[in-house]
């Protein structure tokens, strides 16, 4: 990362000292799981983003593509997950172009953990990384402080306990792809229904050896909003407005840079 600017740090620190609260950031308040099967690995996530107790996004995508064969699911601070995975996917692409090889899962893992460790947990990304490469299929988890885990099935996020209860009771060795998909979505559903910070739909991604990865966006949609029986459409003309102070204009296709003359040009 080119380096984050700390220009406002002192200001915000002194504001904090005078009793100012830091702003609420969007949290993925999440359930994410990963599970291996005989022939590949699966990642799955819920789709709720929260800001405090408010649902900020009902259908956000928490599965990120790091490389065609490597994906990750993120819990924690939403922007940290977006930016850190965006950055990593760029670096993996450059790395693989440079080496002329398809990227490996451990490369992504090591890269990310070094980045997160550097920021001592302040970059709040909690990731499950999965993928297939020349050495086989892999499933890792990575915490914001930089620690990593390996396992045949993993869960992270505020709904991880609910998800893990499903995984612990139903996981077995040598799962087929279909069984693993079912297990993962069931684990996410446990989070969706039992953890308040998780909700909406189940996204699922299947990464298989020798096949293109497949993202199932909205794999399960158990919380569709019921069709409204009536609507609240207003009659045209309901809202009153000032004729003066209102205007109609057109955006030119080709942006017109001449429109904003400098102020000195107007002064004689």
């Amino acid at each position: 990362m080119a380096g984050l600017s700390f220009d406002n740090y002192r200001r915000n620190k002194s504001l904090e000292a005078s009793g100012v609260l830091p702003p609420k950031t969007t949290s993925t308040g999440t359930t994410i799981v990963g599970c291996k099967f005989n022939g590949g690995v699966i990642l799955s996530a819920d789709t709720r983003a929260t800001a405090g107790m408010v649902v900020a996004d009902k259908n956000c995508l928490k599965l990120h593509r790091l490389a065609p064969n490597i994906w990750c699911a993120g819990a924690g601070t939403a922007s940290d997950n977006d930016k850190v995975t965006e950055l990593e996917s760029s670096q993996l692409e450059i790395h693989s172009q440079w080496t002329g090889r398809a990227p490996r899962v451990v490369t992504a893992l090591t890269h990310l953990k070094q980045h997160l460790f550097k920021y001592q947990g302040h970059v709040g990304a909690y990731l499950i990384i999965a993928g297939v490469d020349v050495t086989g299929s892999h499933l890792f988890s990575l915490h914001a402080h930089g620690s990593t885990d390996v396992g045949p099935y993993l869960a992270l996020g505020s709904g991880s306990m609910a998800a893990l209860s499903v995984l612990e009771s139903k996981w077995k060795e040598d799962l087929t792809k279909e069984e693993a998909m079912e297990l993962c979505s069931e684990a996410i559903m446990a989070g969706v229904f039992n953890d308040l910070a998780s909700g909406s739909n189940v996204d699922l991604c299947v990464i298989e050896k020798g096949k293109p990865s497949r993202l199932h966006r909205g794999y399960k949609q158990p919380n569709q909003r019921l069709q409204k029986q009536r609507n609240y459409n207003f009659d045209i003309g309901t809202t009153s407005y000032f004729e003066a102070g209102s205007e109609v204009f057109y955006i030119s296709k080709q942006s017109d840079l001449e429109t904003s003359a400098m102020e000195v040009d107007q002064v004689s």
Partner: peptide, 8 residues
């Protein structure tokens, strides 16, 4: 490209 600006 039509933009309508209204002051409520």
């Amino acid at each position: 490209g039509k933009v309508t600006k209204k002051l409520l």
